[in-house]
Simulated scan of single mutants.
Amino acid sequence: MRNPRRPPGRTVRQRFTALYGVLFLLSAVGLLAITNIVSLGSRVSSFGGNPPAGQPTLAAAQEHIALLQSRLSEMEAVQSRQLLIGSAVALAVMAVVSILLGRVVAGRVLRPLRTITAAARRISADNLHERLAVAGPADEVKDLADTIDGLLERLEGSFAAQRRFVANASHELRTPLATMRASLDVAVAKPEPVPAQTVALADRLRTELDQVDRLLEGFLVLARTQHGDLSDRATISLGRVVSTALATRADDIAGRSLTVHDGDVHDGAWTRGSRTLVSRMVENVIDNAIVHNHDGGWIRVAATADGATARLVVETGGRVLDQEQLALLAQPFQRLGADRTGSDTGSGLGLSIVAAVATAHGGGLDLRARPEGGLRVTVSLPSAAAQAGVPA
């Protein structure tokens, strides 16, 4: 960190003052030089005519004086016009020269700021340990770079503390949940007859504990994603992840008599990122399509690659939805409610996790209401088609 009481040095303000002062002086000198050259050229002229031979008479002398005065007036008018034209030309020339010189000088003066901007753009949550470390005189630019370095240092410490909190919360919060489940199992498994009300209460508590567990897991995944924890990077086949998610949920799909159209799931859609988070993202999209659907409905799934982008598209049928409300579903705890499908299940974290995972991998989530009814979910990720030969 810089010392706020650093000795006064050559500041950027002083350098700008000196540079622009010199440029202004040079422009003024050039303008005067061009004007004087034009003025001297206009003065080289001959009055012409010779005085009368012999002893001039008074009338002849007066006539010659009048002629000289007339010619002098003409020369002064011509000289004024030439001086005006020369001044205009000099002004135009020096204006162009000044703009070019100013652009060059401004580029050299602002070069450290461009360096700082490029370095700040390069530094992200994954490499907060990097610093600008701008060298140079102790001026305002150096102060700015040192201030940004201090900010990056504090951000790095904050991110590290948050990651430690997420890791500790994963253990500390799940332990009491497991203890409560075990206590319920012990209470219900006693040899003596257990009242029916107790069994029903235990079942309800287990259901609520499962919901809390899922909510906690969603919190942890969302926090991990937003903090950029992509430690298990790999090249992943998006099509294979989709096929695995559909196969795992075959019973849920069959239980609701849903028809799945997965003919557009191709193995050529590759991306690179965290295997765990990408799998969770795909599972959340599939789960959303299953849960928020109606019995006997349909799901259309596509995993394709188009140039530099790999896309996962999941569509479902249903009633016509409001596009403005859909824009809120990527935020935590936002749901359309039971009027969407007759179900109010879920924690409201599913699509927010999808959005966070996609953003962490350099992609995005797009939610669109289908004109004929239902929802179209599109997840875009950077493609890794060049590494398609690497097994996922």
Rank of each mutant, 00 (worst) to 15 (best):
P371G: 10
D322R: 09
V29Y: 11
V260G: 05
F24N: 00
V285K: 01
A160D: 09
E208Q: 15
R206F: 08
M180H: 09
L365H: 14
L312F: 11
K190E: 06
R6Y: 11
I85L: 14
L155P: 01
A66Y: 06
L151N: 04
N127K: 03
L32P: 00
G54Q: 06
D262E: 14
L209K: 00
I353L: 15
G374W: 11
T175Y: 11
V188N: 00
T115F: 14
T117S: 15
A308F: 01
P7D: 03
V166K: 01
G54T: 06
L151R: 06
Y20C: 12
D264M: 08
G102C: 10
V22D: 00
T115E: 13
V96G: 10
F165L: 14
G218H: 14
A33S: 03
V93F: 13
A384D: 10
A160P: 04
G218M: 09
R131H: 02
A360E: 08
L184M: 04
A160N: 07
D295G: 08
S87C: 06
G348W: 07
G297W: 10
G348V: 04
L205I: 04
N127L: 01
L67I: 05
Q69N: 09
S237W: 02
Q334S: 15
P191Y: 07
D267G: 12
T17V: 11
R335V: 15
F16R: 05
A106D: 05
Q387A: 13
L329Q: 08
G21C: 10
A33H: 04
A245L: 06
R6K: 06
L336N: 00
E372V: 15
L40K: 13
A385C: 02
S274L: 04
A223C: 08
G273P: 13
D344V: 08
S80C: 03
D344N: 14
A254H: 04
T248W: 07
G49C: 10
A223P: 06
R335Q: 13
D287G: 12
T17Q: 05
I116Q: 08
E283A: 15
Q334H: 14
V78P: 01
I299Y: 07
I99K: 03
A388C: 08
A310N: 03
S257W: 01
Q334G: 05
G255L: 11
R233K: 05
A223I: 03
L84Y: 12
A247M: 05
A178C: 03
